[in-house]
Deep mutational scan, measured.
Amino acid sequence: SKTSNTIRVFLPNKQRTVVNVRNGMSLHDCLMKALKVRG
C-alpha cells in the first residue's frame, strides 16, 4: 500500500492548504508544488 502523509500548512491571510507528501519527495518540493498550484 502506498503511504502518503498529509500535512496542513497554514499560510498568511488565514489561508490554509493541505500538502500530500509522497515517498521520494521532500517536504520542500511538495510545498513549492502546492504553492505554485495556489499561486
Rank of each mutant, 00 (worst) to 15 (best):
M25T: 13
S4R: 15
K36S: 15
S4T: 15
R8P: 02
M32I: 10
N20Y: 11
S1G: 13
C30Y: 03
G24S: 15
G24A: 08
K14N: 14
K36I: 09
K14R: 08
R16G: 04
V21F: 05
G39A: 07
G39E: 04
F10H: 08
V18A: 08
R8G: 02
S26H: 05
D29N: 13
I7V: 10
V19D: 01
K33D: 03
V18T: 03
N20K: 14
C30I: 15
V9A: 13
K36Q: 12
K2Q: 15
S4G: 10
C30F: 04
P12L: 01
I7N: 00
N13C: 08
G39R: 07
S1H: 14
N23D: 11
R38C: 00
R8H: 04
V21I: 05
F10S: 11
N5G: 05
S1L: 12
N5V: 07
F10V: 02
C30W: 01
D29V: 09
V18G: 03
S26D: 03
S4N: 12
M32K: 09
K2E: 08
L11M: 06
M32V: 10
S1N: 14
K2G: 15
K14Q: 07
N13K: 07
L35R: 00
K33R: 10
V19F: 12
L31M: 09
L11R: 01
K2R: 11
I7T: 03
N20I: 14
R16L: 04
T3S: 08
N23C: 14
M25V: 14
D29Y: 12
V37M: 13
K14S: 05
N20D: 04
R38Y: 05
N13G: 04
K2V: 04
V37E: 00
L27P: 00
V21E: 00
S1C: 12
M25E: 05
N23I: 08
M25K: 14
G39V: 04
D29H: 13
R22C: 11
N5T: 10
T17R: 05
S26G: 09
D29G: 12
P12Q: 02
V37A: 08
H28C: 10
K33N: 03
L27Q: 00
